[in-house]
Write a protein that binds this DNA or RNA. Structure first.
Length: 599
RNA sequence: GGGGCAGUAGCUCAGCUGGUUAGAGCAGGGGACUCAUAAUCCCUGGGUCGCGGGUUCAAGUCCUGCCUGCCCUACCA
């Protein structure tokens, strides 16, 4: 990557049918934020965008169950999710929604371009609808008796008992899981994205990809062996209208939620640009061939980001088998890398809101600090394989690593300097041990930085913690508390360890921004060290969406971030006796939390 | 049914294109120190690398079969 590059950091769009749990933020939020924060510190022009995904049947189902309209339910959960992501310190440039007028326009623009280039087919299909509402009933919401094994609550797409894939019309005595009525199977007109037309172009593109996690690449290549046209419309009254004559005014036809949701990356960038006062600014991330884009998500979303979204972009660029011309948005960049995480499980079980195997972000942050959660996710998250969250492990990671390692280093070194000098001491001649410690933390900038850049967050924070251990060892070896009779040497040692702490707070800041800010202040620093996002209430920029009034966006000013480098401490800077940066937890929380889960 | 990933010390995990006695952190045991949220530092025991075949001078690492878990298979990261 060159000196200054435009880096789009695109995070999966949380679905707004409920609060998000810690598995969600482990999958897309924290890893992406670490990456974005680091890239900014390296001087790149980062844009981090996402928003809530608010269309589709599950929103309608949730709204019905709460006696709300879809727009009300979406707004409610949008706000909750925004507050949670803010509390975690995820440094979005814009976190918006898919119900904005701007999003509707962008989606329709892309549809129109794809349609004009001939990549959208119209076909008749047999689909299930709910007789009482006229809405499409997704296969998953239909249950009945499995024709193969007789299991009586097989779903329309698959039998959970025998594992066979089903067609809902195969089910004996099908019923809606939403209200128990018998679905009606009707012949409907729908639009399809002509995925097979992109097989060659996608293969060629994938062959140019480097650095992807092997499982993501392998999975994607496998998908390309068998591609079918994919429906992009539904019989629903909630979603983006289809921008074709004879369709756009129909209240019962909408674009399928996945089609509009992936376009959010583009529409959110455009919204950000318009709000920034430079409406053309979005092009720097989407049209500049030198710009790069990293997409973060959980593994269940790989197909949308590595196959379908690139296919849509190719189609809009006129680069599928049928050719064509770029539309009004010009020629758009395909993803540089699709960074997919695996899944976090919870005490050995899969997260499930309905079975109450869940820890919501909000509940977690009511009792524990955001950096405690961020540390756990960075150090033990599901990066390359599923990982299990247990409260016992959380306790251990927090107390034995974060508090006893990094927190203790900060506390002991600043406390000693404050007590003996009241300031950053003036160093004398450095000895070999001193130089070795400083060299070790300087080296950590490179090793940790390279790992973050390669999206190896676990290894990255592990290396950072090794540097922490080296500083603790340095103190054990030099024992400055025994140097009362030699204040000059004591000052040199304390200066050295404080410089190491200062470097480490910089290195830690992508992972643990809240506590790095605290360490910055404990070292006598002023101003913002690790910038935080904030919530702003805004009005929709355009008519025609479904936002239902002002809504909260998450944004921030990250223009003045510190550089990813060692900054010399200034001797004489006043130091106060520090208060602990991290909270040590009582072992009893393990039982309390497990009790809470079972309550 | 099809496909992907994983199965390495008590626990959580590293082990890239196969190559000397398989590594780390934590937990356990022993010791040192006292600046610090009893934190820190040093030493230390512990593994038939899921199971069975095969390729090779050589396999945790490649091939094959099986077992187990997770995920995708057209709307939950």
């Amino acid at each position: 990557m060159g000196r200054m590059t435009h880096v789009l950091t695109a995070l999966a769009w949380p679905y707004a049918n409920g609060p998000r749990h810690i598995g969600h933020v482990a999958g897309f939020g924290v890893p992406a934020d670490v990456f974005a924060r680091y890239m900014r510190m390296r001087g790149h022009d980062v844009l981090m965008v996402s928003g809530t995904d608010e269309h589709g049947t599950p929103i309608l189902v949730q709204a019905d169950s709460e006696g709300l309209t879809a727009a009300e339910a979406a707004a409610k959960y949008n706000r909750i999710i925004v507050e949670d992501l803010d509390a975690l310190g995820l440094s979005y440039d814009l976190f918006t929604r898919t119900t904005t007028g701007n999003h509707y326009q962008t989606v329709q623009e892309l549809f129109t371009t794809l349609y004009g280039n001939g990549y959208i087919l119209q076909k008749k299909t047999l689909g299930a609808i709910s007789p009482s509402t006229g809405r499409t009933l997704p296969d998953r919401y239909i249950e009945g008796t499995c024709p193969h094994c007789g299991f009586d609550s097989a779903r329309g797409d698959q039998c959970d008992n025998c594992g066979r894939q089903l067609d809902p019309t195969d089910l004996i005595d099908p019923k809606s899981r939403i209200n128990g009525e018998t679905p009606k199977f009707v012949e409907e007109d729908h639009f399809f994205l002509d995925l097979p037309a992109f097989a060659d172009a996608l293969n060629a593109w994938l062959d140019t990809r480097t650095g992807w996690r092997t499982n993501v690449l392998r999975f994607t290549k496998n998908l390309l062996d068998e591609m079918h046209p994919r429906p992009i419309s539904r019989d629903l009254d909630w979603g983006v209208p289809i921008p074709l004559e004879g369709w756009v005014d129909r209240p019962d036809k909408r674009l399928y939620v996945w089609f509009d949701a992936v376009i959010g990356y583009l529409s959110a960038t455009i919204e950000w640009a318009r709000r920034s006062g430079d409406p053309e600014a979005w092009k720097r991330w989407w049209q500049d061939p030198e710009a790069v884009s990293y997409y973060f998500m959980g593994k269940d979303n790989i197909v949308f980001h590595s196959e379908i979204w690139p296919a849509m972009l190719l189609g809009a660029n006129g680069e599928g088998a049928g050719g064509g011309e770029p539309g009004a948005l010009g020629k758009l960049n395909l993803p540089t890398e699709v960074v997919s995480s695996e899944f976090l499980t919870m005490e050995g079980k899969q997260f499930s809101s309905s079975r109450r195997v869940v820890i919501y972000v909000r509940d977690f942050l009511e009792r524990y600090s955001p950096d405690a959660l961020r540390y756990y996710i960075c150090a033990a998250g599901p990066e390359n394989q599923d990982s299990d969250f247990t409260w016992a492990e959380f306790l251990r990671r927090n107390n034995d690593e974060l508090v006893a390692g990094w927190g203790n280093l900060v506390n002991r070194s600043i406390a000693m300097a404050a007590k003996n000098f009241g300031a950053v001491p003036e160093p004398g001649e450095l000895e070999d041990v001193d130089r070795e410690l400083l060299a070790a933390t300087r080296t950590a900038f490179d090793t940790v930085g390279d790992l973050i850049g390669a999206n190896k967050v676990r290894a990255g924070i592990g290396e950072a913690m090794k540097a922490v251990a080296a500083a603790n060892k340095y103190l054990a070896d030099t024992a400055p508390w025994k140097m009362k009779e030699d204040p000059k040497r004591q000052g040199t040692v304390l200066y050295t360890v404080l410089q190491a702490v200062s470097d480490l707070k910089t290195i830690m800041s992508p992972f643990l921004p809240h506590s790095s800010q605290r360490v910055h202040e404990l070292l006598g620093g002023e101003g913002v060290f690790a910038p935080m996002p904030y919530i702003e209430e805004v009005a929709d920029l355009d008519e025609g969406g479904a936002t239902d009034g002002p809504y909260p966006i998450l944004t921030g000013d990250y223009s003045d971030v510190p550089k990813w480098e060692s900054v010399p401490l200034v001797p004489g800077t006043v130091l106060e006796k520090p208060t602990p940066v991290f909270t040590k937890l009582e072992p009893s929380i393990v039982d309390e939390e497990i009790e809470r889960l079972n309550a």
